[in-house]
């Protein structure tokens, strides 16, 4: 399935911003089940300096500096990816979670090290006894790892209430755990915290999910949203994604932007500004399916998409 994603972020400031540094993680990456097709980032006013780079986790990031005074900053990301069907797996056939846990520090290969980095505390996810205790009932002795993770995801889905008013980006996990409320980002952090508290490797995935309009309604532009879920490492299977917010395994409807140890590594757009006064933010995301033939026709016409790297090399 091919998806086209438009992600528009707009900041309005009450006073001019004289200098703005931004770091964006708005470009999809390649994954085992996803093929990057194109991406274009348009920034208004146009940046004096812009760079693309691959970060330590293999994500595509962009750094840009807007040096002209502005009261409004618009960042438009247009991307296209092909999402392949996620191969089915048999949770009961995965190795036991203790076996996986004990094997992680032993593997000193490049791959092993890249997995091992996901068991440690980060600024937003701190392991704790409480998290380990919450996770415990999903992980009795010898339970196959993926079976346990499915159960944990399901419990988070049933025990917690989705409530955008309950948390902010800085709400600590202990509070989420106590109030049993939050948004996808909190649930992802919570599940990661649970798994890491048991000594397992888990990472944060930032992306989108395709939504379908209610029957009989036309899909509105901008009604989709950023999403976040969890990926856990299982030897033999590699990284397996779970979506605790929707109680589902990650299907062909999940589009991956980037992954990291927590939200802080892959925040879609962050910035440091000079001036600006009060600010307001609006974000619009639209995910649409592209029919295969149409896409090829559009492609040959050169319909406006270009590789960002060609666009924004050192201006």
């Amino acid at each position: 399935m091919i998806y086209r994603i438009s992600h528009v972020t707009e900041y309005q400031y009450s006073e001019p911003v004289t200098l703005a540094h931004h770091l964006a993680h708005l470009s999809p990456r390649d994954t085992d089940n996803q093929i990057f097709r194109r991406h274009r980032l348009d920034v208004f006013p146009s940046p004096a300096v812009a760079h693309d780079r691959i970060d330590a986790f293999g994500n595509r990031g962009s750094v840009f500096i807007v040096q002209e005074p502005h009261r409004c900053l618009t960042v438009k990301a247009n991307s296209e990816v092909e999402v392949l069907p996620v191969p089915a797996f048999e949770p009961l056939l995965s190795p036991s979670w203790e076996q996986v846990r004990d094997g992680l520090p032993e593997d000193l290969s490049q791959q092993g090290l890249s997995v091992y980095q996901y068991i440690f505390d980060t600024a937003l996810v701190k392991c704790s006894r409480e998290l380990a205790e919450y996770a415990a009932s999903s992980f009795p002795a010898d339970r196959p790892l993926l079976d346990g993770v499915m159960d944990l995801s399901h419990r988070i889905f049933s025990d917690f209430v989705f409530d955008p008013a309950a948390t902010t980006v800085s709400t600590p996990l202990s509070e989420v755990l106590a109030s049993r409320r939050g948004v996808c980002q909190d649930f992802a952090h919570l599940e990661i915290g649970c798994l890491r508290s048991l000594g397992l490797a888990a990472r944060y995935v930032s992306g989108y999910i395709e939504t379908e309009p209610l029957p009989g309604q036309v899909k509105l532009h901008g009604c989709d949203a950023s999403h976040a879920w969890v990926s856990v490492y299982c030897p033999g299977q590699g990284w397996v994604d779970f979506d605790p917010t929707n109680d589902q395994q990650v299907s062909g409807q999940h589009i991956t932007l980037a992954w990291g140890r927590d939200f802080g590594d892959v925040s879609p757009l962050r910035g440091v500004i000079l001036g600006g006064g009060q600010h307001s933010l609006s974000v619009g995301v639209t995910v649409t399916q592209v029919p295969q033939q149409f896409d090829q026709a559009g492609n040959s016409n050169g319909n406006g998409f270009q590789q960002m790297s060609a666009q924004q090399q050192q201006q």
């Binding site: 900041y11 948004v183 929707n246 962050r270 974000v283």
Partner: peptide, 18 residues
């Protein structure tokens, strides 16, 4: 005036339908 301090912005665009 350019002794004003810089500050941080973090776009949090996380709403999701469940």
């Amino acid at each position: 005036s350019h002794s004003v301090a810089a500050r941080e912005l973090n776009s949090i665009a996380v709403q999701i339908q469940s």
